[in-house]
């Protein structure tokens, strides 16, 4: 066992585990069929059977995907520190800066508790306000947990749509905020704060430590979200078996014009991480909610959260908070209407 704790062992272990992962993942459906219909002896098409099948299949599937992706993302993220991202964004022209900031927002490790030091550090280093916002919008909205769940429950097309529209909103909102020159709505003390220069950019990490951080990411993220995933899928499984199809069509269907703005309004104060909300959204869609409306709901829940607003209030004056919510909310509305119109 000591071998797997050595530097070499830490690199070899994932190489050994990946084939096992692959075999389990690709036999999960057959196993679920066998377990539900043969071992439990349930009948295909029965409500309870459908619900149990959904849970037994989806829960391990999503957990397997999460574990694999978060491991690799955890390693990739050790290369994208906030310090490097800031350096990349310093003095960038607005539009290019917004695009770059939104994309770096996906890969740079970010937690809303670090929003303040990050905001101060960016603004002080001369990253334009709008570019900073593009980063702050993309970072929580487009995260690996959301992407994995969307891929697992909807397929890669929806995951890709989510990432692209999320990028669009982050770029658009940041660009508009930059255009309005709202620097005077940033709290005055922000520009007076002297940011020190001894940040630990020089920190060198060994490759085996990067792998270690991949494991830590699994422990930290999967350890935190598995319960939400389970709850979300239980609710999903229940609805999957028992709620009649087309039930949501009259409430969240594409012909209900007010569904998109209403979903956004409900979504903003609702605070849930991607892990809990996406399994529920997958059922909403299955029961007749339109893609645009569901997408808008999901984005406003994940991307705009009350706790983050409260944290940002320390550095932003109230009008800027409202502008920020208004522009991001507006971007989400456009996305929602656009997708209802296309599909």
């Amino acid at each position: 066992m000591n071998f797997f704790n050595s530097s070499k062992g830490k690199i070899i272990l994932p190489i050994l585990l990946i084939p096992i992962w692959y075999i389990v993942y690709y036999n999960l459906q057959a196993f679920t069929d066998w377990f539900v219909f043969s071992v439990l002896g349930m009948t295909k098409g029965e409500h309870l059977a459908e619900a149990i099948w959904f849970f037994i299949f989806e829960f391990p599937k999503v957990l397997l995907l999460l574990t694999l992706i978060i491991f690799f993302v955890g390693i990739v993220r050790t290369f994208f520190t906030p310090e490097r991202t800031r350096k990349a964004l310093e003095g960038k022209k607005t539009f290019t800066g917004n695009v770059l900031a939104a994309m770096l927002g996906i890969v740079t490790p970010f937690c809303s508790c670090s929003a303040i030091p990050l905001f101060l550090g960016f603004v002080e280093a001369g990253v334009p306000l709008g570019v900073t916002f593009s980063f702050l919008i993309a970072a929580p909205m487009i995260n690996e947990v959301a992407i994995v769940l969307l891929y697992g429950l909807f397929g890669w097309q929806v995951a890709l749509i989510y990432v692209l529209t999320g990028l669009f909103i982050a770029i658009f909102a940041g660009w508009v905020i930059g255009l309005f020159k709202l620097e005077h709505w940033v709290e005055d003390w922000v520009y007076k704060t002297k940011v020190g220069q001894n940040a630990s950019d020089i920190e060198k990490i060994k490759f085996s430590d990067r792998i270690n951080l991949g494991y830590n990411a699994i422990k930290e993220i999967v350890g935190k979200v598995w319960l939400y995933v389970a709850l979300g899928i239980v609710v999903g499984a229940g609805a999957h078996g028992y709620v009649p199809a087309e039930f949501m069509a009259s409430i969240m269907g594409k012909d209900v014009w007010y569904a998109v703005p209403l979903s956004v309004l409900i979504g903003i104060p609702l605070y849930s991480n991607a892990a809990g909300i996406i399994p529920i959204v997958s059922v909403l869609i299955e029961k007749g909610a339109s893609l645009g409306t569901a997408l808008a709901f999901m984005m406003s829940v994940i991307g705009l959260s009350l706790p983050e607003m409260i944290i940002l209030r320390k550095v932003l004056k109230l009008p800027l908070i409202f502008t920020f919510v208004g522009i991001v909310g507006g971007g989400i509305l456009i996305v929602g209407f656009l997708f209802n119109w296309i599909f």
Partner: peptide
């Protein structure tokens, strides 16, 4: 204190 923290130049806590 966030102002003192920023004095150290870190971007994430």
């Amino acid at each position: 204190d966030i102002v003192k923290i920023m004095g150290y130049g870190i971007l994430s806590t």
